[in-house]
Design a protein around this nucleic acid. Sequence first.
RNA 1: GGAUGGGUGGCCGAGCGGUUUAAGGCAGCGGUCUUGAAAACCGCCGUACGUGAAAGCGUACCGUGAGUUCGAAUCUCACCCCAUCCGCCA
Length: 416
Amino acid sequence: MHDLNEVLRQGHKFDEELARRHHAGLPSTFLSRTGERKAALAQLQAHQAERNQLAAAIGTAKRQGIDTATFEAQGIALRQTVDQLTERVGAIDAELHEILASLPNSLDHEVPPGLNEASNVEKSHSGQIKNFAFPPREHFELGEALGLMDFTTAGKIAGARFTVLRGDLARLERALGQFMIDLHTSKHGYTEIAPPLLVNDATLFGTAQLPKFAEDLFKTTDGRWLIPTAEVPLTNLVSGEIIDVAKLPLRFTALTPSFRSEAGSAGRDTRGMLRQHQFWKVELVSITTPDASADEHERMTICAETVLKELDLPYRRMLLCAGDTGFAAAKTYDLEVWLPGQGTYREISSCSNCHAFQARRMNARYRPAQTGAKPEKPAFVHTLNGSGVAVGRALIAVLENYQNQDSVGFRNQSGH
RNA sequence: GGAUGGGUGGCCGAGCGGUUUAAGGCAGCGGUCUUGAAAACCGCCGUACGUGAAAGCGUACCGUGAGUUCGAAUCUCACCCCAUCCGCCA
């Protein structure tokens, strides 16, 4: 969410910013409506001041036993005016808030132009792509051949886009998740969190899944929502807070399931467990000051990359272009892992710096270090999130990259 | 799900229709005193918006939202959350 005063201050520059995202820009009435609001608010406050004075005068008069009937008649008239103005200001506020809440974040100046993923820029790559002496198979072929990955039974008990894993494959998925979260807590300084997997409207508004992306989510019968990523509860841990600057950065991680309706992706990746309604993911979230967030973004991406390096999986780091960068993000790196079965790179992690965009929606602030006589004003934190990494996709990558002619052989330090 | 009691500034806590501009305390900041510190004393000490060069002035906010009233932290209703007990439950 953008700050109204900042939007007004930037004027045309703000529309140019939105244009980088191929967004139409602010509605033509926006400026005039803010003007109306300002005028109505000034009037409202003047009348409220009058009302407060009148009420105080009536109180004094009553104590002195003076008749207050004419004062009270004035008060009734005043109340009608105040009510009308309150309604008018409230209506304009709601309108402006709705517009502001629907605008995507401004992009970092480093984000390259482009409409879609074709314009993303490779920043680095790592690991050796194996030459197989046989045509490498896709993960679902391997999994089904092993008898440990079962889409038929999953379809029977849940439907499409679910998987039943059995035996060693169920265990391997669990081991991968545990390995990742242990790495981030013991080596990378993240605090493990076990968050709620169901959250309320305000929480999803805070990280900007609501109001625009409700169709991507599952809603419960009591009005809550299943989290589409642990980014949602982890980032909202600091919603409404004013954090002492000495406590920053805060680094949180969690191993949780993620639930996505995949409403817009009918027909895409329908085979296998690449795109599921439910998948495990290790999430990384950092809360920092504005001056530290760019470095934190690099650090976080390296933390995610370390997972792939430890698993010895080939991957590349992509800087997303303007058209591919998500609604809340100012700048995003995707990590794409090599899948020999598909013969292509696929996203396995996405690390974003959201600047103050989510912080403003959540009202999450920090108190800067005091320099003068008075305490500094609270300022919005910067929030960052990244997958470290998607466990289901890591399982796929391990299967495909470690396959042999007639089996799968994989072993890492954790002994699996 | 039922019953009862609660939600007030960074924290504790008073206030239950009009001198509340939210008492008092703790913590924090500035100062006096001191070689320095502590103690004591004095002052400052929430957030947002509007206005102003600034000091300041104004408005809103006492869990959230509606309502009653000339006037609401205070009264009414609904909801949310917390505590305790009962019921149910992994």
